[in-house]
Amino acid sequence: MRYSNFKHLILITTLLFTGYAVAEEDKYSPVREKLETCFACHGQNGASSMGAFPILAGQEFYYMYVQLKDMKKGLRESAVMGPIAASLEKSEMKLMAEFFSKQAWPETNYTVEAEQATAGKRVVGAGQCVACHLGDLRGNSRVPRLANQHPDYLLATMLDFKNGVRKNSPAVATLLKTFSEQELKDVSDYLSSYSE
């Protein structure tokens, strides 16, 4: 290939990719300002590094969309998220959920003691969790990824299910009521440190 042709190829490729990036940027521009609000707690592009705020980057699109709808309806109560979700239109929820779902899941590097991992694994088996969250515990569509999520958030949300605070997935709530707080702690730590 001659050098001039190579230059043209580079130029075309650059334009193509730049165009693609602009198109993607444009796609989310209606919610860009709202996404910036999300980043304040959930981290840049949803890659939360604070344990109380779930990682959204790489989470399942349909799951996040349903959660926003449920928060707006009050099925999933949250003093912070409730008012934010209430202000969103469905089209905005879809765009925001799509944006986060397309980001890469961040490295978390949680670890767990062997004994606790065994206890957590036992909970996963008894609850048949992989039947819905799948074998790698990464979820699909309306079922969320649990693997490598922050343990603080996992425990808090499971306790919310157990204690009837979170009402938007009744089957999960009933199941989690059958486990002790210690078992939920074990499984939170196990899930956060999960590796295949």
Binding site: R122, C132, N168, A171, L175, K177
Partner: peptide, 25 residues
């Protein structure tokens, strides 16, 4: 398994077991 029951209205297409099944480890 243990069979657990809980009053549950229709949740609009979400998982609707009206309780839970648990394997007994």
């Amino acid at each position: 398994m243990t069979y657990h029951v809980e009053e549950t209205p229709y949740p609009d297409g979400k998982l609707w077991l009206g309780g839970a099944f648990k394997v007994i480890p």
